[in-house]
Write a protein that binds this DNA or RNA. Structure first.
Lengths: 343, 343
DNA sequence: CTGTTAGCGCTTTCAC
DNA sequence: GTGAAAGCGCTAACAG
């Protein structure tokens, strides 16, 4: 019954007429084993289709060579690009990346964290859905596993994070719009309780204030309908805004779509600039200017940071107070296409 | 040293002054344990931040409650949507989905399979990069783990698969273009060694032949430059084609972009229809008509099929010759937007 | 070069 | 209700 499923090391040993140690040596590089024995064991392994049981190995050793990644959704290109980049790093470190998704549910996030801990992941990368949540903070601070946060830092913790400079990005973007001569610039926020969005709002405010302009926040947009309603309302103003700064991808798209449908000329009648690049931003007409985040870099840097910590922890168990708790801030870049008023 | 990392069950048992069996019962539902004991054990668990070690559990039991998914890339929306859907099913079955990516490398694909087998995944879903490869087929046929193929079936094997009806989809699409009155329809294939592409080509050929039209394949397109070259060449013909049928996403986009750049009117001067839907196909102007594949359904059905097999295998070890080796073919749908000539 | 042996942390009979 | 003890498959001393 059991044999039908998976051959075991001792099974191999028996059939090859050797001890288990020898087989263990063979599957771990074959050092210190005589050529004949090695060949014989290999033959039996081949014959049985033997594969070492990772669970048993894990039970002995200290590392599982597994790292976890917790993200809201794998279908979101921002996170899937991070994931892809992290995969590459993990593989380079001979580790397996386990990606789990939370669908933005706090409970699922905590569940996933627990699953990964039960699996004894060597380390975890997480994009905390709600970085303010107490329960999550507690759990994160309690576990003895290196964690790196991405996209948003975890409040009240020493957890290192890899984020982009949302403030500066939004600031530059707003300044750019101001540079085009627009005096009245609305900011479409989407939901505004996320760290990233709040930072971007801050950047927008800062740039507007510096230019002596009035900030104008539109927080109601979360789908096509609300975008339409909001934009129609804006157009009815005696002096409609000249530009829209959209703080997230979907909002940018909803706004763009609506402007098109309402036959509002972009950028002459209303310019638009979005935060976060997306595949077809360069294909639509006019092409959409955006603040581009170094998405792959986030995933890559986070994974590298994590492995760095793993190595540190391995060699110096007591030097915990070393370089931890740092935050890596990556730069965003303004990609100028037509929609903001550039050629 | 070890304690610093993770508390163990026996540690909990000792501190709670009970046997390991009792603790085991507690963490597995707490049945057959007296209320007081239960409370005491729970307290210690809480105090120690104890988490059962999955590796140890796996070593005992038969299932790991883990399934693997092997796809070319997680950043490709087609596969990431499949993955997301599979995640949901896996979670519903209280299992962990491990997603690995091959970057279209056969070796990585085989490596990933081995990793998953070593981790004793209960089952595996794979989008085989090269479904014809002998080595992969052998490995897949040898392992005693339920496997389901998606997007492309594995040749020469009894492995069940979940695919879309590429032939019929391409056929209907071509017929639709023909219905618009176009006589000269070029088919942009992209690389043509994949199963899906070959099926689509077959569908195109079939529809063209049925209408008594000449098939016209353009296989050179793999980036912006090649698209531009090919389209310029087509336009120079004395009688340029009236429509393009693009067999894959990226090709559709390259072609669309080029047509725009060359100021070719879509669809009047040249119509275009793509295979596989993408987020912004409906946003660009004109919106692009496509053959839409039920992406989420592929992932969902594949995962469900897999769990179905797992359950079968569990209850009837000998009924192996039951309903296996079937292939599920999902229907594609034509989404008509402006680019093909529809309103 | 090779084998014996003792666990890793957990579940699971089988007694009490 | 509860616990003792026997492994699950593997690795790592420690002897030869």
């Amino acid at each position: 019954m059991k044999k039908s499923t998976h051959a075991t090391l001792s099974e191999v040993a028996r059939q090859a007429g050797v001890g288990t140690t020898t087989v263990s040596r063979v599957i771990n590089g074959g050092h210190r084993v005589s050529p004949e024995t090695l060949a014989r064991v290999h033959a039996v392994i081949e014959h049985l289709g033997y594969m070492p049981n990772q669970a048993a190995r894990t039970l002995k050793g200290d590392r599982t060579r597994t790292i976890g990644l917790i993200i809201p959704s794998i279908a979101d290109s921002f996170f899937s690009s991070c994931a892809e980049a992290a995969q590459v790093v993990a593989r380079a470190h001979d580790s397996l990346l386990i990606v789990t998704t939370t669908q933005n549910s706090l409970q699922t996030e905590i569940d996933n964290l627990n699953v990964l801990i039960r699996h004894r992941a060597d380390g975890i990368i997480i994009a905390p859905g709600n970085s303010q949540n107490q329960e999550l903070q507690d759990l994160l601070n309690r576990i003895h596993v290196p964690v790196v946060a991405i996209d948003r830092p975890v409040a009240n913790s020493l957890i290192p994070s890899v984020v982009t400079d949302n403030f500066k990005g939004a600031c530059s973007a707003t300044e750019h719009l101001i540079g085009h001569g627009y005096k009245s610039i609305v900011c479409f926020t989407g939901e505004s309780n996320l760290y990233t969005i709040r930072e971007r709002i801050r950047g927008y405010h800062s740039a507007m204030a510096a230019a002596g302009l009035l900030a104008d926040l539109e927080t109601s947009i979360h789908d096509r309908a609300s975008a339409e309603k909001a934009i129609e309302k804006l157009l009815k103003r005696p002096d409609p805004p000249q530009a829209i700064f959209a703080l997230k991808n979907s909002t940018t798209i909803y706004a763009f779509e609506t402007l098109q449908r309402l036959n509002v000329q972009i950028p002459s009648q209303m310019a638009i600039l979005g935060f976060d690049d997306f595949e077809l931003a360069s294909i639509v007409r006019p092409a959409i200017s955006v603040v581009q985040q170094p998405v792959e870099e986030i995933g890559r840097v986070a994974a590298e940071l994590l492995f760095e910590h793993l190595l540190e922890d391995r060699k110096a168990v007591s030097t915990t107070a070393s370089g931890h708790s740092r935050t890596v801030v990556l730069n965003n870049h303004l990609i100028l296409r037509g929609s903001c008023g550039c050629s």
